[in-house]
């Protein structure tokens, strides 16, 4: 800390995150330039695409799952743990929500609530499996969360490809869920999933700042040994935090299925890459919830802007993924952003 401030003092102080974003934009611009594009036009298209008032609903709609997956990553990260299994948890949530909506004999609002709840519980349990594996058997969660995604995705893919497939279409997907199970629309593409996500985000911030458990999680993140010595029950804390993290992923899956896809479609939840963008956003803020939410919103803007850029300049929107990665790498290397906020 002090060593760095001594080293940096010769330069005018630029806060780390804006500097990293600047570097990311610079490198991205060079990349565009090198491949024969016009960086200024590209960035203008991104900016307009993300921030023009008429595009707000789209940006917000994209932000709901992305911020959700940001919280999925941020919550364990706050305690120094990494959940790389967001993809699997997301898929389980989406599939369970679709199945509950299709097969539970419940009336409208109850059906929605039940579907969301089932999705959250299923994903939460799946995520806590990795935590249990580490506390009970010492299998590093870093890798087990990731590996557990593959069977989840494979089996979900098989289920909608064969036994649960909607035979009227040519695609691997379930039947459409009944109208009653669909999330009420607020305006345009926005549905009450947005409100649910705002509530969850607020709850996570409140948890982090005001609760005893939030304090204990923060302390674990700063020094797990210290927390254990101070009486924090590390094993059960780990399982609980991973359950919560997975449950949020399940909620995101449910919101996507009940709110915009209206069915579970093979691959549809994963193609946008919410999990990894969310992880990047959480890392950007070192797991601090408010910062992570802000970073998630920023990435959501970047990505919706990316669509506009691709439409208008024919520069592929994966450029935004490169930008995200460069920002994280710069912060990790230059400012030690990571699991410990040292």
């Amino acid at each position: 800390m002090s060593e760095q401030s001594v080293r940096a003092s010769r330069l005018p102080r630029i806060p780390a995150v804006p500097l990293a974003i600047g570097i990311g934009i610079l490198i991205g611009g060079l990349l565009v330039l090198a491949s024969g594009g016009d960086p200024v036009a590209a960035y203008r298209a991104i900016l307009v695409g993300a921030l023009a008032p008429s595009n707000w609903p789209n940006t917000l709609n994209w932000a709901v799952p992305l911020v959700g997956m940001t919280l999925v990553a941020a919550l364990p990260l706050r305690g120094g743990m990494v959940n790389l299994g967001g993809d699997g948890q997301l898929v389980i949530g989406g599939l369970v929500a679709a199945l509950a909506a299709l097969y539970l004999p419940l009336p409208g609002p109850l059906l929605i609530a039940a579907a969301i709840l089932c999705a959250m519980i299923a994903s939460g349990l799946y995520a806590s499996l990795a935590a249990w594996g580490e506390t009970r058997f010492g299998i590093p969660m870093l890798i087990s969360t990731l590996l557990l995604s593959y069977p989840a995705i494979g089996i979900a893919s098989y289920l909608v490809g064969f036994p649960l497939r909607d035979l009227t279409t040519g695609l691997a997907q379930t039947r459409m869920i009944p109208e009653a199970a669909r999330l009420p629309v607020i305006a345009g593409p926005l549905n009450i999933g947005l409100i649910l996500m705002v509530v969850v985000a607020a709850a996570v911030v409140f948890f982090d700042r005001r609760t005893v458990a939030g304090y204990e999680l923060r302390m674990r993140g700063q020094n797990a040994k210290f927390a254990g010595y101070g009486g924090v029950r590390l094993a059960s804390q780990q399982v609980r935090v991973m359950f919560a993290s997975g449950a949020i992923a399940g909620l995101v899956g449910a919101i996507l299925v009940l709110g915009s896809l209206y069915r579970y479609q093979d691959g549809a939840l994963l193609t946008p890459g919410y999990t990894w963008s969310g992880l990047m956003a959480a890392l950007l803020a070192g797991g601090a919830p408010l910062g992570a939410i802000a970073a998630g919103l920023f990435f959501a803007g970047l990505q919706t802007g990316g669509f506009a850029m691709q439409r208008e300049t024919e520069i592929p929107r994966v450029l935004t993924m490169v930008l995200q990665a460069v920002i994280i790498l710069f912060l990790a290397i230059r400012h030690g952003v990571g699991r410990k906020s040292s």
Partner: peptide, 15 residues
């Protein structure tokens, strides 16, 4: 640069 290897690797995979 003493960065966190896990974070750097995650970033590299995405990059």
């Amino acid at each position: 640069f003493k960065g966190d290897a896990v974070v750097i690797c995650i970033g590299m995979n995405l990059l």
